[in-house]
Computed example of a mutant assay.
Amino acid sequence: MSNSKYKCFDLNVVENIANLVFSRPDELNTMSRDFWVELGEVLEEINRNSDIRVVVMSSTGKHFCAGMDLSAFSNGVDNIPDDKKPDSARIGEAVYRVAKELQGYISDLEKIRVPVIVAIHGGCIGGAVDLVTACDIRVASKGAFFCIQEINIGMAADVGTLQRLPKIIPDSKMREMAYTGRRMYAEEAKETGLISEMYESQKEMLEGANKLAKEIASKSPVAIYGLKAVMNYSRDHSVTDGLEYNALWSGAMLSQKDMTEAITANVEKRDASFSDLVGVKKFNESDS
């Protein structure tokens, strides 16, 4: 299934793997206003499709993503005449709502039911770092680099990097990057744990990412969803709270059917076959 209804993304689903590709190479795949809104829309589409068991996110052109499109920066009142503009408190409230909206689109990567593998080439800059830190697995090609660009334009990153990156790489290294805006290249990213694998070329990287996706897609989808939910919850809570959540999840959604199939397939030396998750529908949508 191929989907080109988006301006900023191409979505292609084959054999339970969704390849989500940034499709504006001439604009360095900057995060325009359309990019942000479409990110939320395409992730909702992915989450609703029970045929999808894993996502491979990649890009086109010179850079993975050059970060926020500067023309998208706004306090929400730019077009209001000066004599009618609200006071600073109301402007601040509008800016707060915009930040929360963008944070929500990034957080959707963690909320969807399937893992997201992101394959990075070229520059991963500014808001793109916020985005990749919300993905489950990061791989990169040699020559790729990461840059917390916001400090270089006089602001602090505000849609996820400062919250997620310290839980991926050492805090001191993250602070160095945030304070200086320097580039971290793939070799260093591999050493610090920001990426799990580095490939010689973009072609090899995409092949490797899809090979990994195929392996993940072969597992029980309800168990994979459980792993993602429990690992994300445990990352943000105490060990005690994480164990409690883990026990509750197992009590509610441990599939004896899938366990039996996995064990039987292993004994019979064949590939296991698992049913899809139930498709996500809005409350007023028909089950037919």
Score class of each variant (00 low, 15 high):
residue 213 A to F: 10
residue 230 V to F: 06
residue 216 I to N: 04
residue 259 M to C: 15
residue 134 A to V: 04
residue 165 L to Q: 12
residue 147 C to S: 13
residue 77 V to L: 08
residue 43 L to F: 09
residue 3 N to S: 09
residue 15 E to S: 13
residue 72 A to L: 07
residue 14 V to E: 15
residue 80 I to C: 00
residue 99 A to L: 12
residue 28 L to M: 13
residue 276 D to G: 06
residue 8 C to F: 08
residue 23 S to Y: 07
residue 48 R to Y: 05
residue 83 D to G: 07
residue 261 E to A: 15
residue 20 L to I: 02
residue 36 W to D: 01
residue 42 V to P: 00
residue 246 N to F: 08
residue 155 M to L: 10
residue 165 L to K: 12
residue 62 K to Q: 14
residue 7 K to I: 03
residue 4 S to Q: 14
residue 198 M to P: 03
residue 85 K to M: 10
residue 168 I to G: 01
residue 252 A to T: 11
residue 66 A to D: 11
residue 225 Y to L: 10
residue 286 S to A: 15
residue 79 N to L: 15
residue 153 I to L: 09
residue 215 E to P: 03
residue 131 L to P: 01
residue 173 K to I: 05
residue 126 G to W: 02
residue 240 T to F: 13
residue 2 S to L: 14
residue 95 V to N: 06
residue 268 E to L: 15
residue 256 Q to G: 15
residue 234 S to P: 00
residue 131 L to C: 02
residue 106 I to P: 01
residue 234 S to T: 11
residue 31 M to L: 09
residue 209 A to Q: 11
residue 267 V to H: 04
residue 100 K to T: 10
residue 30 T to C: 13
residue 86 P to D: 12
residue 159 V to G: 11
residue 149 Q to Y: 14
residue 194 L to S: 00
residue 120 I to R: 02
residue 76 G to M: 11
residue 75 N to V: 13
residue 157 A to N: 15
residue 201 S to G: 01
residue 103 Q to W: 04
residue 202 Q to N: 11
residue 47 N to M: 01
residue 71 S to K: 04
residue 254 L to Q: 15
residue 197 E to P: 04
residue 166 P to K: 05
residue 50 S to F: 04
residue 270 R to F: 14
residue 241 D to C: 02
residue 78 D to K: 14
residue 154 G to T: 07
residue 66 A to F: 11
residue 164 R to H: 09
residue 229 A to S: 11
residue 116 V to E: 03
residue 4 S to K: 12
residue 139 V to Y: 05
residue 103 Q to K: 12
residue 214 K to A: 09
residue 281 K to W: 10
residue 218 S to W: 12
residue 275 S to F: 03
residue 23 S to F: 06
residue 1 M to N: 12
residue 212 L to H: 07
residue 63 H to K: 01
residue 58 S to H: 03
residue 74 S to M: 07
residue 6 Y to N: 00
residue 128 A to N: 03
residue 166 P to Y: 08
residue 221 P to N: 14
residue 2 S to Y: 14
residue 16 N to M: 05
residue 18 A to I: 03
residue 131 L to F: 08
residue 139 V to Q: 03
residue 85 K to S: 11
residue 222 V to E: 13
residue 100 K to G: 10
residue 118 V to T: 07
residue 254 L to V: 14
residue 260 T to P: 07
residue 204 E to P: 02
residue 70 L to I: 09
residue 224 I to D: 06
residue 169 I to E: 08
residue 40 G to S: 09
residue 148 I to A: 01
residue 38 E to H: 04
residue 238 S to G: 08
residue 235 R to S: 10
residue 127 G to I: 03
residue 251 G to H: 14
residue 4 S to L: 13
residue 70 L to V: 08
residue 102 L to H: 11
residue 36 W to Y: 03
residue 63 H to A: 03
residue 45 E to T: 11
residue 60 T to L: 04
residue 158 D to Y: 15
residue 203 K to L: 14
residue 211 K to W: 09
residue 132 V to S: 02
residue 49 N to R: 06
